[in-house]
């Protein structure tokens, strides 16, 4: 992936200012969830739609080659799902750590 700073964020271990363990745990869970979803984001668009489309095109979805379909429609559908999954999971994590978000 061309986004070097994702690793910079995920790999960060600098000591926290006020190390409440709940805050650290919350942030770690957020980063893990984010990384997983971004990998999916990358795979459906850049992976299926561009780099690997020749392989996927051997299969068809309806009347469209699969790689082509991911590039024009499939990736958009997955993007929408990704955002709602993130919103729902984050709300659950915030409830778990009893965090009010205002």
């Amino acid at each position: 992936m061309t986004d070097p700073s994702v690793d910079a964020g995920a790999g960060e271990t600098s000591p926290e200012v006020s190390p409440t363990s709940a805050r650290d745990a919350y942030w770690r869970e957020n980063l893990t969830l984010m990384s997983i979803l971004l990998v999916i984001w990358f795979v459906v668009s850049f992976g299926f739609g561009i780099l690997g489309r020749d392989i996927l095109d051997q299969v068809s979805i309806g009347g469209a080659p699969l790689g082509f379909w991911f590039a024009q429609q499939g990736s958009i559908i997955v993007f929408i799902i990704l955002i709602f999954v993130y919103a729902a999971r984050m709300s659950a994590i915030e409830r778990k750590y009893k965090m009010g978000d205002h």
């Binding site: 668009s45 429609q73 958009i76 993007f79």
Partner: peptide, 27 residues
């Protein structure tokens, strides 16, 4: 097929917005 750049490009950014920028900037 080349038109896919607009379809993916102008929608995929919202995933980045939702995951990486928008909630923090709002906070």
């Amino acid at each position: 097929y080349d038109g896919s750049v607009f379809l993916m490009g102008w929608t995929g950014g919202y995933v980045l917005l939702a995951l990486l920028l928008a909630p923090y900037l709002r906070k």
